[in-house]
Design a protein around this nucleic acid. Structure first.
Lengths: 151, 151
DNA sequence: AGTGAAATGGACAAATA
DNA sequence: TATTTGTCCATTTCACT
């Protein structure tokens, strides 16, 4: 992992559909070296895959919500039951266990408030062992970076 | 936007480096139709780009934090000043204005607690007009979906 | 279905450390 | 010495028309 690798990762996060020749020019290396570097970054598991980025607005997903969820019990079984239920719901885009007392942060995308209400009642409220939930709606996205900083 | 388009978007979010022939087989359409559909989804701005996915762990970014930030004032100028400052910091991956009284949710990736402390003191605490901040650390990621549901 | 571009993989010499 | 890089090379796959 040198500065050329980092530049490669930056360029590939920003746009992965460039040709290797273009990438080589951007990072200042030869095409073959570039190709080898990408292959080893993939083999090392640093690059985990390639994905198409979609515009949620144009998919009609105009509502983003962050929901903080606390469990009644922090026992291992109740957490496992909760997490298994989360995995089953497609409307839950993301879920993290956070510091504190068995709190989770969940990210939801919905078409509108009515859809969010349906998700809330037909999905979030069905999660087992929940003691409290607090929803924040994203009114406007200030910044949405593509991926991670490479240092 | 029919069911084939939605299947295409699902497949492309999951893995965008498949060949068109493979995609065609997955969604049950001909290669040429598939190709045309992808081009129009791109032209319509539904597909906004393609990106490489990186493993934050292997980049040494083992600490994920969500920081809720409240401003002292909700005036337009103080919000604009805050948002401009946010845009300038690479360590802030994501920032959303959320419902409530000028609260923001910010996402941070750091190498470790010491690095987070550096970000906290050298970046977050420099943001103008902040009245309070609350950090939650992601102990474990339960679920991280690739992109959005397509319906 | 055909064309052209690009990815892939290999061989070898030069450079680097 | 050992590892990495750059310049060819041939093959094949694939996007695009």
């Amino acid at each position: 992992m040198d500065s050329i690798d980092r530049a490669l990762l930056r360029a590939l996060q920003e746009n992965s559909s460039r040709s290797i020749a273009d990438l080589a020019e951007i990072v200042g290396a030869s095409s073959s070296s570039c190709h080898r570097r990408i292959k080893s970054l993939e083999a090392a598991g640093i690059i985990t895959g390639y994905s198409a980025l979609l515009d949620p607005q144009r998919l009609g997903l105009k509502l983003h919500a962050f929901v903080e969820i606390s469990l009644e019990s922090q026992s291992r079984t109740s957490m496992e039951r909760f997490e298994a239920a989360v995995a089953g719901f497609d409307d839950i885009l993301e879920c993290h266990l956070t510091s504190g007392n068995a709190d989770y942060i969940v990210r939801i995308a919905a078409h509108d408030l009515e859809h969010f209400d349906r998700i809330h009642r037909g999905c979030l409220s069905l999660l087992p062992g929940v003691s409290s939930m607090r929803s924040s709606f994203a009114i406007r996205t200030i910044k949405r970076g593509k991926g991670y900083p490479t240092g």
